[in-house]
């Protein structure tokens, strides 16, 4: 399939809570091509779920338009629904049902025959490692098993466009890795267009070839993870020096630091942010040696998406909840 899968123009959603207006999504202009794998990255309350809920016809936009799989979400919601899959933040399978029953009725809801729905359910149960638990009540499953069942539900009709809202929440590292493989395979083998939201920076980094950073209901960056990191954050060289006074000297005299690099000190540690850190480090060490400064340890780190977020907003994505909690 070629062409545009998602196009939004000025997509906006407000909520009114106790006479106050929350601008959850503010004028989103989004364009996703068929076959893309896009991660929406942003802190709690950034507007990720609200965006997905508008694109999946669950919420009418306050203003703006959205075309999904070639159809307008407000004009033809049922047409959109038939063409997409959605794995929400909650549990798709009802707690009072058995997993297999839910999978079969989900398949039937998308127009599969009873036989086809049963066969497809069995395939997905096997491939998502749910054989032992599929015939139990959903309420008796562990959080991770339930999440896998939700994912199976979303895949039952092999949609061309799949939305996943925080798919890996509640999964252990092994199942997270497996889910990522699943998502990558869906795309590689079936050309499925995938839009997912995540808080996990490494997930966005590994999985998506396009990351859209959202904050306060707006897109603040949209690029490949590599380019985002290259544009918005440099490498970090962390030097641990023998004495704090040496560290002070390095900062004060900007020893061995290239122009434009950022330098910070904490105790006997100095962090230098710069491009081409790996190339620079040996030169830096030589320079410090010549100046008679003893270096106990050195570490060169590639930038993370967290650094990108920090650079863009001045806040750390990782500690978002912790710091806002303290400020309150």
């Amino acid at each position: 399939m070629n062409g545009t899968m998602i196009r939004t123009r000025g997509l906006t959603r407000h909520f009114t809570v106790k006479k106050e207006t929350v601008e959850a999504v503010r004028g989103l202009d989004l364009h996703v091509e068929a076959g893309e794998l896009v991660a929406l990255l942003g802190p709690n309350g950034a507007g990720k779920s609200t965006t997905l809920r508008m694109l999946t016809t669950l919420l009418p936009p306050t203003s703006g338009t959205a075309e999904v799989a070639g159809l307008d979400v407000t004009a033809d919601p049922r047409g959109v629904r038939a063409r997409i899959g959605y794995i929400g933040q909650g549990n798709g399978a009802a707690h009072s049902q058995r997993g297999r029953d839910e999978l079969v009725s989900q398949g039937r809801a998308y127009g599969l025959s009873r036989t086809a729905a049963r066969a497809r359910a069995a395939e997905l149960i096997a491939s998502l490692d749910l054989e032992g638990v599929a015939d139990r009540l959903v309420s008796s499953l562990s959080g991770g098993q339930r999440r896998r069942l939700d994912i199976a539900m979303g895949l039952i009709h092999a949609p061309d466009l799949l939305f996943l809202d925080e798919p890996s929440t509640g999964l252990d590292p092994q199942n997270r890795a497996n889910l990522q493989e699943h998502i990558a395979a869906l795309r590689a083998e079936h050309g499925t267009t995938i839009v997912l939201t995540t808080h996990y920076l490494d997930e966005a980094d590994q999985l998506a070839e396009r990351v859209i950073v959202i904050d306060h209901g707006q897109v603040i960056a949209d690029d490949t993870p590599e380019r985002l990191k290259a544009d918005h954050a440099g490498d970090r060289i962390t030097l641990t020096l023998g004495h704090e006074r040496d560290a002070r000297r390095v900062v004060a005299e900007r020893l061995g630091v290239v122009a434009g690099g950022r330098v910070e000190r904490a105790g006997a540690q100095v962090v230098i942010e710069t491009d081409g850190g790996a190339r620079l480090a040996p030169k830096l060490l030589r320079g410090l040696d010549e100046a008679g400064i003893e270096v106990a340890a050195v570490e060169v780190a590639r930038p993370t998406l967290d650094d990108v977020f920090l650079n863009l907003t001045g806040r750390s994505l990782r500690e978002e909840s912790a710091t806002t909690g303290e400020a309150a």
């Binding site: 039937r108 809801a109 699943h182």
Partner: peptide, 30 residues
């Protein structure tokens, strides 16, 4: 978990249309 099964049994491309009676039967059965 293993690889995603190929969607042999799943409708591909054009979604299948269902009738009101079928929809109701699915919900009723569930």
């Amino acid at each position: 978990m293993s690889a995603v099964p190929s969607p042999l049994n799943a409708p591909k491309g054009r979604p299948m249309s269902t009738s009101m009676v079928m929809d109701t039967a699915v919900v009723f059965g569930r």
